[in-house]
């Protein structure tokens, strides 16, 4: 048996290598196609497949005009800014509220605690569609009158992200050593001080995990952004959806727009993948 060994001494598995290379290629090709097409001129993209450009890179006229066209002409620049302005507060604000709640659920005893927590778990699964008509009324002109503004969307994402955030942070906090919390109490720290000085810093891995997931959800959301933002405040995802709706012309702009919309999540993904994995393995059900 002349099976070659890997550095760590395990036998090399040719079947696994071949299958994984094929799968990895299958998973990558669609995105590569988008990236390549976004740099091709309109005529090139309409008359030949993107893979011909990749096979013959020097006989192609590469261009960045699609990006200029979609950034200025289709207002992706403004939409990009909207996405950032929406996603950052909608990621941080729920953590504030959820962290305090998670602290109480983990380290305090109080009547109705069990019931409250089961409620949190139950609403994690409730589809967010239940909220749309009532919230359109509540936030709309006959209610608070903020529908269409950033604030409406921040509020909604805060509410919808809250159950999962409380759940994840509580799970993490319950792994922290209780003795530290108790010694802080003996030292005379109030709960508020214990939370800020001890529990919040120690829970950073779980906070980062939730923040990564929540940022991606908010950035990639179409439903809430479409229903609760007016046309000046739309996000890149809504702008891309509108571009997808226009048939025929603008095909070349579409690919550039799509790439603009996925570049930020991709950066987040590559830099925070570690946290994202941790977030997912600690339960990522969201209704």
């Amino acid at each position: 048996m002349a099976r070659s060994l890997m550095k760590d001494g395990r036998p090399r598995s040719p079947f696994s290598i071949v299958t994984m290379v094929v799968l990895a290629l299958l998973w990558t090709i669609p995105t590569v196609g988008l990236l390549v097409t976004s740099f091709r001129s309109r005529d090139d993209a309409a008359t030949s497949g993107w893979w011909t450009a990749l096979l013959n890179p020097f006989s192609q006229s590469w261009t960045t005009s699609n990006y200029e066209g979609v950034w200025n002409g289709q207002d992706f620049g403004a939409a990009f800014l909207n996405s950032i302005v929406i996603a950052i507060p909608a990621t941080i604000i729920p953590i504030m509220f959820a962290a305090f709640a998670a602290y109480a659920f983990t380290f305090m005893n109080f009547p109705l605690k069990e019931l409250f927590f089961l409620l949190i778990i139950a609403v994690m699964v409730v589809p967010i569609q239940v909220a749309f008509q009532p919230m359109l009324d509540f936030l709309g002109p006959n209610g608070l009158g903020i529908s269409g503004q950033y604030m409406a969307v921040w509020l909604l994402h805060t509410g919808f992200g809250m159950p999962l955030c409380i759940y994840m942070l509580r799970n993490y906090m319950s792994t922290l050593p209780r003795t530290i919390i108790e010694s802080a109490k003996i030292d005379g720290c109030s709960h508020y001080q214990t939370f800020w000085r001890l529990v919040a810093p120690m829970s950073m891995p779980a906070i980062a995990a939730f923040a990564t997931l929540q940022f991606l959800w908010v950035w990639n959301d179409l439903l809430i952004a479409k229903l609760f933002l007016n046309s000046e405040n739309v996000t890149v995802i809504v702008a891309l959806q509108k571009l997808l709706g226009t048939q025929g012309q603008g095909q070349e702009l579409l690919t550039a727009g799509a790439f603009i919309s996925i570049i930020v999540p991709m950066i987040v993904f590559f830099s925070l993948q570690r946290f994202m994995v941790r977030g997912m393995t600690s339960g990522a059900v969201k209704g």
């Binding site: 990558t28 196609g33 990639n220 891309l240």
Partner: peptide
């Protein structure tokens, strides 16, 4: 590489698969 699409929105993915 297989995990990467998790970061992409449904709308972005639809644009990608449109090609």
């Amino acid at each position: 590489l297989i995990f990467l699409p998790m970061a992409i929105s449904f709308v972005g993915a639809s644009a990608i698969w449109g090609l």
